[in-house]
Design a protein around this nucleic acid. Structure first.
Length: 301
DNA sequence: CTTATGACCTGATAGC
DNA sequence: TGCTATCAGGTCATAA
């Protein structure tokens, strides 16, 4: 579900609610959404596939690893990942996957109920002001990863991520992907090249940059990379201002939807007219993802 | 090493 | 109404 603008919006709304608060307790309803530094076989790094590869029964998660007894001093983001940092120095990284949410309810408020009830409320924290924080994720593509320090978070959890997409540069993109034989759209989705762009903003940035998504990265000239870097940053900044794109489920930590969907030029508009030239927008699978572009504004050449 | 592909999950919706 | 097929904002392991 969430790409950089949605995650950044969650970061801001979550920070406003939890920074300065102390976690008084936590209930873990699904252990397997959590990976700890001692037991990496949990959370979104858990082993998937054949039954013979199923991991041994995971150990209990120490409450301190989930920041219980800790005052929250910061909420960080890199690409699509978040992390809450405690005064102890410990950190809990959160990846929202496709359907994950972090939601806060103030003292006396009920947590916003999903249509399926609380069946997918996997981790619930109690705050010292009587509030609650829940990690909810029906599809379970997301999860939590604990770290003993921010240094460990950056060096182990986030080390494989490329630079944050808000810092995209022509030089950086060219250096990391300029020789690649892949389609430029696949490169933009690769979190080791650039962290934070997903299917919506890849298509939107390619449209703004007038680059065809199927063009091979190694065929792009410097001007094309420069336009891409500029428009990746531009569309992400605009989307953050709008609180992100709510297609169906996404909300910030207070349950509010984002409004950037109304500004999508191509995503979700296959078969409709191009807003720039009126041509019918194309839609096809590329890099396993539905991709929409304008054949006139974004020529293959 | 690089690149492509199917797998991992559940819920909403469209079509019969 | 009720069933089935398809699709979804993202990674991840494995194979070529």
């Amino acid at each position: 579900m969430p790409e950089l603008p949605e995650v950044e919006t969650v970061r801001r709304t979550l920070a406003a609610e939890v920074v300065g608060r102390t976690f008084r307790g936590v209930t873990v309803r699904r252990r397997d959404v959590i990976a700890t530094e001692l037991d990496p076989a949990g959370g979104f790094s858990r082993v998937r596939g054949g039954a013979e590869l199923v991991t041994p029964r995971p150990a209990r998660v120490p409450k301190a690893a989930l920041l219980v007894g800790d005052r929250v001093v910061d909420v960080l983001r890199r690409g699509k990942q978040l992390a809450m940092v405690g005064a102890s120095g410990r950190a809990v990284a959160v990846h929202l996957g496709m359907s994950g949410q972090l939601l806060v309810a103030g003292a006396g408020e009920r947590l916003k109920e999903a249509s399926w009830g609380d069946a997918h409320d996997h981790v619930v924290w109690r705050l010292d002001d009587g509030g609650r924080l829940v990690f909810r994720d029906p599809r379970r593509f997301g999860g939590l990863k604990t770290s003993p320090s921010v240094e460990h978070l950056r060096n182990e959890r986030w080390s494989a991520l490329g630079p944050d997409a808000l810092e995209a540069t022509c030089e950086g993109l060219q250096e990391r992907a300029g020789a690649s034989a892949r389609a430029v759209k696949a490169v933009l989705l690769d979190q080791t090249v650039l962290a934070g762009v997903g299917n919506i903003y890849a298509d939107e940035a390619l449209f703004r940059a007038r680059v065809n998504p199927a063009r091979l990265a190694r065929e792009l000239d410097r001007e094309a990379w420069a336009r891409l870097a500029l428009h990746v940053r531009g569309v992400l900044v605009e989307a953050i201002r709008a609180g992100g794109s709510t297609l169906r489920d996404y909300t910030d930590a207070r349950g509010h939807a984002g409004t950037f969907k109304a500004s999508h030029a191509v995503y979700g508009r296959g078969g409709e007219p191009c807003l720039a030239c009126g041509a019918v927008l194309e839609s096809a699978l590329l890099a396993q993802r539905t991709t929409v572009w304008c054949h006139a504004c974004q020529p293959l050449r």
